[in-house]
Nucleic acid binder design. Sequence first.
DNA 1: CAAATTTGACCTCA
DNA 2: TGAGGTCAAATTTG
Length: 361
Amino acid sequence: MFHSNPKPNRNDPETMDPRHALSLILHGCRLAKDLEARLGDLANQPETLSRSCDDIISMFAGAKERLNNARPQDPTLFSHQGSSQQQTDPSLQELLSYGVITQAMDVIQSCRTSISIGGEIQAMDVSDSGRGSSSSSQRSHRRKHDEEKRTMRVPAPQMGNTDLPPEDNYTWRKYGQKEILGSRYPRAYYRCTHQKMYNCPAKKQVQRLDNDFYIFEVTYIGQHTCHMSSTAPSIAPPPLIQDPMVITQPMASQPILPPTTSSAAPLGTWLSMEVSLGSGSGSSSGGRGGGGGVGGDAGAPSAAATGSQYGRDVVEFPAVADMADAMFNSGSSSSNSMDFIFPHREDKWEAGGGVGDKENR
DNA sequence: CAAATTTGACCTCA
DNA sequence: TGAGGTCAAATTTG
């Protein structure tokens, strides 16, 4: 298992894609986690340990190389040099926004978090979501067949409030939750907090995967028009784009977000993630306390986090290369580095245990 | 009191 | 008719 790694291939343009770099980081994290799990068995096998370490290192080294090779002037990659949002690679933005970078941040900034295995981002067609009853996903009188829907899989936060889906820099208000036929976990319905004030049509649905409790399937419907709000996030929203990674359904109207002020934040800013060192709380900030504490709602997020989930310090994406660096450079500083980096996570969620949702009405 | 969540009821459509 | 999506009253919280 340690040696089936996707070795970076410098000559392969595809693997030079920064997205691949993120994939490498994740893979490296997994290898490290795996190594941790087998540390006891391999304690007296220095050669194996060495090889495993090499594998892990090569993963991060490859990632770092890719990140360093990413040319800022390349509009398809990182265009964080004051370029407009339209110049950025949307799929990359989505990746960064919805999971991969979150995991990297979790690992590197805190070094106290275990990595979700299999927490890769997978955008996919809603019509092929694997849910038993996806065929009627666009019903109701408000159903709009021409409305855009983007579905992606997002790993649950690795620290703090893991009930929350990963931060997406918007404020959402939950307006419903429902048991879905054939699904173990309920689906939560959110709309933009600023729906009324700004007539923002954006919605999202969050549901855990049946077979992976630690991965959310998030479906975004509609596009935000509320980015000018004072309480809305200061960074530009994830663009709606056509991307092999993000399959988009036909959309009648795709409002063009005016490239003004905050909405036109350069990618550097857009990619910025606020990191709260030491806070460790991924909890919803804008949220008022989970109201009616009646039934348990552990099956779905009680709130969609807002832009302040990560705290204060802003870390820009290119820093990921350095973060990978930091992981290795700091590893030896701790007598128990692996444990420091990958502490055992308590399975906070007992599968199905927290789902206190009532049967459908 | 405002804003948020919870949850039963209702609506629409395949 | 049943499932998915939404509404809105009740409730909670700061």
